[in-house]
């Protein structure tokens, strides 16, 4: 089996896939993985070529727009070790067009679509679970630790919804941030983070929300298991309603 390597970036991955598809190799007989730079690593390194990646996206957009969507979500998952599946999935997308996502009995389609779906689910979840807090200076901050790298589409969602306020979204684990100034979104990384002071009004509103959260539940129907399965405990760190008035 022929072995190819790429630099580990999303763009490098797409441009590597483009190179392999052009090479005429049978995608079923090819392996693609991240270069680890170990001494005995075998394989041909494919250079990151952004023009090539861009061109592949464009061609795929015309042939199978749903597959572009899937690819986009797949990248959010930041999974390694299934790059070969992704390459074969792209080949199948060119072959079958937009129907490709229905070919779930194919192991590579299943792996890619399944991964993308999980990322999409978490993105949808975060649209609901993200919590903004008002800071002393009047700007808003939301912290999160999602499994998938969802900050970009999430920021776009809130740029439409909360258009009138200046906010930051901070991905604590990835140390990445999105900033909306009322007109433009910008993305960046954060070297050092210390949580700024909250406004006085913020503390009051958090209390109101905790009160509402407590009383809206019907005591006779208490069901912590169902609550947990809908809202896994890993998201509770930044949920105001799950803090019971303690400082975080």
């Amino acid at each position: 089996m022929k072995k190819y390597l790429y630099d580990g970036t999303p763009e490098g991955l797409v441009s590597a896939i483009s190179s392999i598809l052009e090479s005429g190799d049978d995608p079923q007989q090819v392996f693609l993985g991240v270069r680890k730079d170990t001494l005995f690593e075998e394989g041909l390194f494919l250079r990151n070529d952004s023009a090539k990646a861009e061109a592949l996206f464009e061609r795929l957009r015309l042939r199978a727009p749903d597959a572009v969507h899937t690819l986009w979500y797949f990248m959010m998952a930041e999974t390694e070790d299934i790059e070969s599946s992704l390459m074969r999935y792209v080949a199948l997308a060119f072959e079958h067009g937009n129907q490709v996502n229905g070919y779930l009995t194919h192991p590579d389609v299943k792996a890619v679509v399944g991964t993308a779906r999980k990322a999409g689910r978490e993105l949808h979840r975060m649209k609901g679970l993200l919590r903004f807090e008002q800071l002393r200076d009047g700007t808003w901050l939301a912290r999160m630790e999602p499994d998938h790298n969802v900050i970009q589409p999430l920021a776009h969602h809130f740029s439409r919804r909360l258009r009138g306020q200046e906010w930051f979204i901070y991905d604590v684990r990835r140390r990445s941030a999105a900033h909306w100034d009322g007109g433009v979104i910008s993305f960046g990384t954060v070297e050092q983070f210390s949580r700024p002071e909250l406004s006085e009004e913020e503390k009051v509103m958090q209390q109101m929300w905790q009160t509402f959260f407590k009383t809206i539940a019907i005591p006779e129907r208490k069901n912590p298991r169902l609550q947990k399965s809908n809202m896994p405990a890993k998201y509770w760190t930044y949920l105001i309603e799950k803090q019971d008035g303690q400082n975080r």
Binding site: H124, G128, R161, L162, A217, K222, P224, L226, N230
Partner: peptide, 17 residues
Amino acid sequence: MGNTSQGGICHSWSDDG
């Protein structure tokens, strides 16, 4: 301020699930 989404969005789950 604010929009709506076709599929709806859940923001939390109370103690009754």
